[in-house]
Design a protein around this nucleic acid. Structure first.
Length: 470
RNA sequence: GGCCCGUUCGUCUAUCGGUUAGGACACCUGGUUUUCAACCAGGUAAGAGGGGUUCGACUCCCCUACGGGCUGCCA
């Protein structure tokens, strides 16, 4: 273990339910999960659904589905941030009582006017509320928001496990609103209250929150709460180095499932993207759990590389258990909207697995390599296969069938027959293998001819040879 | 505009002041082979630019360039 186990660790993943689970979010969740689980700690899930306009139950369901597919399980119930709004408001009022927050009667129009005037003058200062130090006796009977009374001088230091010491001068930060004039909490307040109440010890999230951390830390301080360990990780970029967006194609975790990448491979790849532990490249989830630490996270944004993703997935498909592979393959079929396997195909697929899994990087590829087993007579032949079945070849295939009737169906018994056929016709084995592939699979690129014969069995083999030589 | 973060082979990265700058993916060459894949052996390829500090900088400091983020009564 890179670090001692620490059952006291509590991490969380806190997405906004405004779409499906973004691949970057999936990686953030994975890092949190690895960190907590690797230390015997807890991993919590909170849905930040305070934006009622954009939050949907469908999005929440999609996020849970994405996490589940990735194999990331969370402890306890999923927390809805929206449902905790009363608690947030309570804390805002406690801040008022502590003198660390104040009522602000400036309207949004006032603020907009202030900003417009400052910008016109070429300045971009923070908004300073005239109500910050106002005598409560002068408070009008009007709607107000609650603003944090942030320090106006000095600096806030964020000690971050990834970013190091980040110093923000307090004068660059305004008195952020913690409770809106309609009584609803803002995100900045809600995250802090929730993380505190949920006893989160390590906040591992995208570095787009790094600046926010300073203001959030002020809330911790204002309430006298313990600040969690911060770890702001760089975002993932597309292959062109730009922030990952729709135009890069796949951005949702569900897209990757539908493209046929195995979850174990995704976990490995995503773990390794922006994190390193020496030369470790291909590892199991158990190994990742043992190795993962915050120190190994890089500060620069990483780009998605599909070639490496595929290579990583190929290793995982090859090392996966056949039955587990079949099960996940069926999950892929459903996710991709492809027809499910019949019982017969399922049995054949399982039988074919050892001969195809070492040559596939994705599920579509696995299916394609196993096409010989999943297809049924009459076998459809592509152009090259048809060309391979010339008159001479058909004659050789025809001469083969009687011999195949009686041998025991093992590679050891089959091999002498085929090599003899080649030798008898004065040709290399490759020249016999080509028409055999064409007859058995309808293609010229297939797994080993012996593997195919053993998987589909004697009767099917003979029938296909007869079809081809007729 | 202000503030914050980043920059090592094409890509992911190792290095934590002294290395022929290492590994992986990709790519190229050769081998193996029953086609393809896999596999084996080689190879091409890197510390953004400029100043410092130091006996010595990829490593520490400053500037510039480029990229990203924040700058909401969004999250």
């Amino acid at each position: 273990m890179a670090e001692a186990t620490n059952p006291g660790v509590v991490t969380r993943f806190a997405p906004s339910p405004t779409g499906y689970l973004h691949i970057g979010g999936g990686r953030t969740a994975l890092f949190n999960w690895l960190y907590a689980r690797g230390r015997g700690g807890r991993f919590l899930l909170r849905i930040e659904d305070t934006d009622r306009e954009r939050s949907t139950p469908e999005a929440t369901a999609a996020i849970l589905k994405g996490l589940t597919w990735l194999g990331l399980d969370w402890d306890g119930e999923v927390v809805s941030q929206f449902e905790r709004r009363d608690r947030h408001a309570e804390v805002a009022h406690q801040m008022l009582g502590r003198g660390t927050a104040y009522k602000c009667f400036s309207t949004q129009d006032d603020i907009a006017a202030f900003r417009a005037a400052e910008e016109a003058a070429g300045r971009y200062p923070v908004f300073l509320s005239p109500w910050r130090d106002a005598d409560p006796a002068t408070h009008p009977d009007a709607p107000y928001s609650i603003r944090m009374k942030a320090p106006r001088s000095g600096e806030t230091v964020i000690v971050d496990e990834v970013q190091g010491r980040v110093i923000i001068r307090n004068e660059t930060l305004d008195d952020m609103i913690v409770l809106r004039s309609d009584g609803t909490p803002t995100y900045m307040l809600a995250v802090v209250v929730d993380d505190h109440d949920m006893a989160v010890t390590h906040v591992i999230r995208g570095d787009d929150h790094l600046n926010n951390a300073a203001r959030q830390q002020m809330v911790y301080d204002a309430m006298g709460w313990t600040v969690p360990v911060w770890a702001h990780i760089p975002l993932i970029h597309g292959p062109d180095g730009k922030k990952l967006s729709k135009r890069h194609g796949a951005t949702g975790v569900e897209d990757y499932q539908a493209m046929g990448y195995p979850a174990a491979g995704m976990r490995n790849y995503l773990t390794r993207l922006g994190w390193a532990h020496g030369d470790a490249e291909i590892f199991t989830t158990e190994e990742a759990l043992a190795m993962f630490d915050l120190k190994g996270i890089g500060k620069a944004p990483a780009r998605l590389d599909f070639k490496k993703l595929e290579n990583t997935c190929g290793h995982h498909i090859a090392m996966m258990d056949n039955a587990a592979l079949l099960h996940e393959l069926e999950g892929y079929l459903a996710a991709a909207g492809r027809p499910a396997l019949t019982d017969a195909q399922r049995a054949l697929m399982l039988k074919a697995m050892p001969s195809v899994k070492e040559r596939a990087k994705t599920f579509p590829e696995l299916l394609d390599k196993a096409q010989f087993a999943l297809t049924s007579r009459p076998v459809e032949r592509d152009a090259q296969a048809a060309a391979a079945l010339d008159t001479v070849s058909r004659g050789i295939l025809k001469s083969l069938t009687p011999q195949l009737q009686s041998v025991s169906w093992t590679k050891a018994e089959l091999e002498p027959i085929l090599t003899a056929a080649a030798a008898g016709n004065g040709i290399g084995f490759g020249k016999v293998a080509a028409p055999l592939r064409a007859a058995l699979a309808g293609r010229t690129v297939t797994p080993s001819v012996y593997d195919m014969m053993l998987v589909i069995g004697r009767d099917e083999t003979i029938a296909r040879l007869e079809d081809a030589s007729a």
